[in-house]
Design a binder for these strands. Sequence first.
RNA 1: GUGGAUAUAGCGCAGGUGGUUAGCGCGUCAGGUUGUGGCCCUGAAGGCCCUCGGUUCAAGUCCGAGUAUCCACCCCA
Length: 436
Amino acid sequence: MADKTTPRILQGFCELLPQDQLLFDSLTDKINETYKKYGFFSIDTPVLEFSEVLLAKAGGETEKQIYRFNHYDNDLSMRFDLTVPLARYVAQHSQDLVFPFKRSQNSKVFRGERPQKGRFREFYQCDADVIGSESLDICYDAEMTSLIFDVMKTLDLGDFVIRINNRKILSGFFGYLGLSNKITEILRVIDKLEKMGLDKVKAELKEVGADDKQISDILDFVSISGSNSDKIKALKKIDAGELYSLGVEELDTVVTMAVQLGTDEKNLKIDLSIARGLDYYTGTVYETNLIGHENFGSVCSGGRYDNLTGYYSDKVMPGVGISIGTTRLFSLLKENDMLGSLTKKEKSAVVLPMDNDRYAYAAKVVSEVRKAGIRCDVFWSDKSGKAKFKYASRIEADFALAVGETEETNNTVTVKNLGTGEQEEVALEKVAEYLR
RNA sequence: GUGGAUAUAGCGCAGGUGGUUAGCGCGUCAGGUUGUGGCCCUGAAGGCCCUCGGUUCAAGUCCGAGUAUCCACCCCA
């Protein structure tokens, strides 16, 4: 073993064994199918973009995390999310797209940050966004809410809550308190309320520069309680300017409409402390948590942004979108032994030729089974009978189809159910039917 | 970027106060059973004990540095 290269991969990069990959694919399939049902069109964009394009807007944290390098004369960057490439895509192809444009995308993104539990440097995001031309009705925000609801129902990961808020409400209210120049910082602090607790938030708000009266107003505000309609009523009583009122109006519409679209109100909760760290959200914001697994963080987040393509085009294009970090979600589910709901697996079989003269007959058998649309494999190896059945068992096939001299003579197959251990000789033309 | 932990077989781990041949479980391969997997039994293969340096008659074990990985913070999916 001297001088061999150690097989290894980069930290924060992830790959799965075949049985896990099967489950991961089932996770993304379920999400994509739901997106499709809502009328989204799937696209893909390049992993690499010109740095000037990708970094047109980025700054601060994101910029530091981008994998960027030169190749000959090109300054290149790897996409760190799917939204910026979408903006470029829409600006570049706007004349060929139909608006409102509903696109979904399931692709890998790259972030050069320190990996840890549930955080990767290369990971899949499963996004759905609607982009409008000039304007985009608030009903789309409601539709996204309903989409989150449907996805979560389909994934069947247990009880969940979609927490919803509107940035206009927060910005309007904080502006009204005379804190309009500190809105971004305040939003970030408020967003941490659940995690850090009241005292720390108070201290941080003070650091940001709010006085005691402002702090208590803010905290009273975000802790407005009751049902969704109670909260809306309470919010409507407060007079905090035009932006604020518009936000309340929007939130009211989104919640009402989402319910009409099929969202169960039990799973939808107005939460005035949700702000989302990302600064490009301007209206509705979403976070989704699994009840009992709050430590997972948000499994599906998103929101409304006013002008997606501002850095690439003069056209105003508002949008609303959501994102599911499937790599993270999968790794957390696996760690918590929650992959059970993903095991939807089709039946599969493997043909075992019992001796070397049986290959031709094995070919006939496998072709018959495949014609019926059943996943089927042949073990073309001259090993012991034990090894053959062991192979069938290891690949987790449901059936082993043993074919030897007797079977060929009788034009049959010995079907062994690897789950129950029972076996039976079945006529070749009946095999496919027998396997179902 | 800041703080903490870990590094021994393909994987998961054990190896009091230094002592000569480094173990266990899983996996792999072979056999018990050459047409029957999972369970059981037997056997085999597989180790520069992360790297470099230091202390010592003697280092997997002690000390230092480096590297890598993991965890937490920041931020986020």
